[in-house]
Design a protein around this nucleic acid. Structure first.
Length: 270
DNA sequence: CCCTCGCCCTGCTGGC
DNA sequence: TGCCAGCAGGGCGAGG
């Protein structure tokens, strides 16, 4: 379930193989994921040198020396496979570097995407133009959340999933951040108190930073043959724990909000 | 503008 | 053992 920490971990892992590398071969094994692959993807990438990698929200960025950036989204099930022994089903895009490293973008459910964007126009790219601040940057403040939530009747759970308000949170980390901040996911945005937003900001940062640290610890395994990027063992306090005891002594419950499961403890989240 | 809902897709799980 | 319904979810568009 790639959210911000998984994408960040993936990008850091890919950088070991791609930073400064020249792309020797690109294989596109099906016409599309969520969208068609760019028609000029192969010709744009083959022969290019990768100048750097980055991340924006849940998107990974692979910058090239041709002023074009390959932007990938892992969707629900996307992952990069490193030095695979064999190309398997769902290895939709395969990149081989001049140094002989092979990286395969595998995405069984095909909710992911691959695009090519002019590097100097990334901020204006439609998917990026309306994104809210990065949660680990200076833009996420209690004041920002207070402003974004003001007057909203929708549950705060859904507002935090809205990439225009904060960029990069998904279902799991929203549940975890709300729990740490003692805010109920069902509370209307406009009814989140100032104290609530002041707890939410450090809670969001903490869950993301801890997850990145945990994911980063698996990077050492990436060099192994068949090593895979993007997943790490996480210990969640509420997500997926319906019926279990909360640390406060309450019981973790579950409800569907906006078609997605929310997990929270009604005893310590108000 | 705001809010909610359904769709896309496949693999895994659990119930019978 | 086999079958099948249900679930997972990010982004986006439809409709109220």
């Amino acid at each position: 379930m790639p959210e911000l920490p998984e994408v960040e971990t993936t990008v850091r892992g890919l950088a070991r193989y791609l930073e400064g590398a020249r792309i020797a071969r690109v294989a596109v094994n099906r016409p599309d994921l969520r969208r068609p692959f760019p028609a000029d993807l192969v010709q744009s990438l083959v022969g290019a040198t990768i100048t750097g990698l980055g991340r924006r929200a849940k998107y990974g960025l692979i910058h090239t020396d041709r002023a074009r950036t390959m932007v990938f989204h892992l969707g629900m099930s996307g992952r990069w496979r490193i030095e695979p022994d064999t190309i398997e089903k769902h290895d939709h895009l395969v990149i081989e570097t001049a140094a002989g490293h092979v990286l395969a973008l595998n995405d069984a459910r095909r909710f992911g995407s691959v695009d090519l964007v002019d590097s100097d126009k990334l901020d204006a790219w439609p998917a990026f133009a309306a994104l809210g601040p990065e949660p680990l940057g200076d833009g996420l403040t209690p004041r920002h959340l207070q402003h974004a939530f003001a007057g909203r009747s929708a549950p705060v759970k859904g507002l935090l999933l809205d990439q225009r308000i904060v960029a990069g949170l998904g279902n799991i980390y929203v549940c975890e951040a709300l729990h740490r901040a003692h805010v109920s996911p069902e509370r209307a945005g406009g009814q989140v108190t100032r104290a609530g937003t002041e707890r939410l900001v450090p809670a969001i940062r903490a869950v993301l930073e801890e997850s990145i640290a945990a994911g980063g610890s698996t990077i050492r395994d990436y060099a192994q043959p068949n090593g895979e990027l993007g997943y790490f063992a996480a210990s969640w306090r509420v997500y997926g724990r319906e019926g279990e005891a909360c640390a406060c002594g309450g019981t973790i419950g579950r409800a569907v909000q906006g078609g997605r499961s929310s997990f929270w403890c009604a005893r310590c989240q108000k």
